[in-house]
Amino acid sequence: MNTVLQFNSMTEKKINWSETLLTGLTLFFTVVPFLTVILILIQVLVQGLPAISWTFLSAAPRDGMMHGGIFPCIFGTVFVTLIMIVMALPMGIGAGIYLVEYAGQGPIVRVIRAAVNNLAGVPSIVFGLFGVGFFILFVGRSIDTVLKTGLLFGQPCMLWAAATLAVLVLPIIIVSTEEALNAVPQSHRQASLALGATKWETILNVVLPQARGGILTGAILSISRGVGETAPILFTGAAYFLPHLPAADLFGVIPMVNPASQFMSLSYHIFVMATQSIDPVKTLPIQYGTTLVLIALTFLMNFTAIGFRIHFRRQQEKFSH
């Protein structure tokens, strides 16, 4: 009797309106951002694809930047990001290792942790101004004074732009390093120490090999962040227009990037085309084309990161059933 009653109440069709409404709302809020991204992508793809050609990718801008290509921008973005990661990676990994493996839980360390987390929330334009004040005016000018190089380091250039970007992405690398290290079981560290390994040997041989997937993912995510940033490089090294590549021949023979030169960059180029060109409407195809290249570059980075993560997880699984 009882069960029959329960069964009846189960099959009874009673619509709970507030429940349905709330479910619908949350679904709506999930779909809206997704659709927005899709729409933006479609817009960029449709408008940008016609602008893409071999010339566009391989030539420099000409005719007051109304025609030609964006090769110097690609070149500049790629190399400034490369220099950025070379600077940020050792520092970020080092800081992450210190915070997890050595620092413990003292009050100073807690302040450092909070600072790192807050750093991630600082607007990027602030980093740009910091770059001017610290790297160019303080560090650069000081080097010039000491080395008597006139005005060589104390002005905007690729090196300082990369350094500013490095500070910007530092929290990403530190936090992802911390997470990756924390994921390594304490028992593995104990086993290593008990076998007569020093702390550093333990980190090197047991902890880092397990953490490298997470650290690499963080590195690539920070590269993809660095690729897209405009504000930090605005005053620290990005050029409106540069007729030559920021390259030099080392000892007159070995071609290399010249970090003491200014550079053109994709993100800044879009900004310039949209706000400061002679005719912003006529350059619209260039803007869309540049945006498409920039987005493609960012996506490439993110997919590489995902690929790495999958690769390392597989490798980890192979050794940890």
């Binding site: 593995h188 104990q190 086993a191 397990q210 980890q316 050794f319």
Partner: peptide, 8 residues
């Protein structure tokens, strides 16, 4: 140790 802890 109490819980076997081979390295991966």
């Amino acid at each position: 140790f109490q819980k076997q802890n081979p390295f991966p």
